[in-house]
Amino acid sequence: MKIAVLVKQVPDTAAQIQIKPDWSGIVEEGIKYILSPYDEYAVEEAVRLKEKFEGSEVTAVTVGPERAKEVLRTCLAVGVDRAVLIHDQENSFDPYSTAELLAKKLESLNLDLVLCGKQAADDDMAYMGGAAAQKLNFPFISLVVQIEILKETGKAKIRRQIEEGEEILEVTLPCVLSAQKGLNEPRYPSLPGMMKAKKKEIEEIKPADLIPDFASLAKTRQERLQPVPPRSAGRILKGSPEEMVKELVKLLRDEEKVV
């Protein structure tokens, strides 16, 4: 199987996020960057499929700055074969432009399967899988928790989460699937794996090499980041457990009107 995984480097989920004084972005100093948590499931699944189907190849693709090479190395260290960094530029906030770049690269890979996380842990867009699928004319299924490749029919049996429970679907390959937590238990990179990953070459591409008029593609603009109105600490109730509970219920009913 030829598999591509779309990955993104994002701030550690435990990081405090500060906005630059001009509100144009976040303060990057002091932030530890990681592979987006949902992408870990996608990468792990791709590597497991590769291990199952002989002759498979897994390519990890990201759009990002120079430092995004770190997450590509993480992918290589757990068994991904090839890594591609498409350098970002000004309009990389625009999801449409980014999807165009990714799809352009993916087209050239002659794929059976594209995996990605259900959303990136920074912009929480949940866009790239569906958008790439449209551009490639592949079907797309989000929130996938189980994948069974049916080699003989060229299809896959999928379990995915919905509000009421789960759906079991059959999809024709090639397709795009977005990974939900629960798909698998990602492995940690081994030391030899990390050593090997260091030596592997990362393919680097400039947006203009893929799409000459890239700069004119943007469909949205990020105007600014702004702080979330702070939530202040409220009231700590006092008294015996009985008194506190009685007061709480009274407040919820009469003041907050939520029960």
Binding site: P95, Y96, M125, Y127, A133, F140, Q161, I162, E163
Partner: peptide
């Protein structure tokens, strides 16, 4: 922003070559 709504939103905006904002 339901399961179906989120899944569709990205696909629709890509198909219509328009802007997108999730959630």
């Amino acid at each position: 922003s339901t399961v179906y709504g989120k899944e569709l939103a990205g696909m629709i905006s890509a198909k219509l070559k328009g802007g997108y904002a999730g959630d």
